[in-house]
Amino acid sequence: MKLIIPMAGRGTRLRPHTHVTPKPLLPVLGITIVERIVRTFVNLVPHKITDAVFVLGDFPAEVQEKLTEMCTKMGIDSEFGFQKEALGTAHAVYCAAEHLDGELIVIFADTLFYTHEPLNTEADIVAYVKQVTDPRRFGVVARDEEGRVTELIEKPNHDRFKEALIGIYYIKNGAQFRDTIAHMMENKLVGTRGEYEVTDALDMMMKAGAALETASVTDWLDCGTLSALAETTQFILDREGNQLFGDLINTTIIEPVYVGPGVTIRDSVIGPYTSIESGAEVNGSVVKHSIIFSNAEVADVVMDRSFIGHSAVIKQSAFSANIGDHTVIEYLTKPSTGVHKPPTGATS
């Protein structure tokens, strides 16, 4: 069984943090978004995942190296396709055409989820869904009066059907799926957005006799915007709890907090709902409801609901901000922040 993971998008809604790092490689509590997705399916499916096929955009070679390393760690072979222009979800999948055979799981890598339902690999197609109040922003599953799936509808103008498609599909016959997309592209069968859509390809397969079932998820976590990433981080902190791997010196932790390996924190108050990624350093600061990415340096700062990019340096300030990778911000005159260093011994 293969995982097909299109991830060629530039992640513009997460900028400036995706100028250097592709969105699926952003970490959530020390584990990248894409690795969390792959781990989910390694643990969920009854058959062994043999290959993970990543469809990439114009990314540096380092991205392939990181993905290969991730797969090797889980005993999976890594393969790559490349999408040079964005022509839709089906087009993105077809950029890995040479790998589209046998059993497939197609995953669009900006969504994390949890489910209690086992995957039914006897089905022709399984679409993962989540009940929503307002389905008009999503693709949805339409059913007849007997509950059978009849079609997939992109962004309906009514709220009759409330099972939203979360962008994850099991497909038993990968070759049929590949050939269906090829037929769409050869005949320019685009959807309402003028693009080649996976949902349209699956509709065509159903019309050709394939049966589609659904699997429900209990939680559907978006990582596509900064606010969504913050909410997802908070949700997973609640679920996984405190994780403290770094060095905490004269520091107070207000749970839940993630502190990654190689992090050093001195004379600070951290939390709640804060994630500090590997190699970062925090001194004399108060940090809450924030994400500090790897190797950043924060000193004499009070921050709330902020994002500090990889290798950014922030000193002497009080703010709520979104600071990109490799940024340096220093104040020549230290502002009055009202920060009081915790008393000696107030560590946890």
Rank of each mutant, 00 (worst) to 15 (best):
P27W: 06
D51F: 00
I236D: 03
G246R: 05
V339W: 11
S336V: 13
E122W: 01
Q83W: 02
L3E: 01
P6Y: 09
D110R: 11
A210D: 13
I153F: 01
L104C: 07
L26G: 02
K315E: 13
E231Y: 01
R305D: 12
F319I: 12
L226N: 10
S317G: 14
E117V: 11
V45C: 11
A318S: 14
D247E: 15
F82Y: 15
K2P: 01
Y94C: 00
V313W: 09
K288E: 12
K48E: 14
L237K: 01
S306Y: 09
F293C: 00
K188A: 13
V126W: 03
D200R: 06
R178F: 04
F138P: 05
D58H: 11
M185Q: 14
I253W: 04
T40R: 07
V28M: 06
G279I: 09
I254G: 00
V298Y: 09
A346Y: 12
L119P: 04
E186F: 03
F82S: 09
L212G: 06
P46C: 00
Q176R: 07
V42D: 01
R15P: 01
E197F: 10
V129K: 01
K23L: 15
L29N: 08
E281M: 09
T180H: 03
L119Y: 11
L44V: 04
N250R: 13
T89G: 04
V190H: 02
V140A: 05
V198I: 15
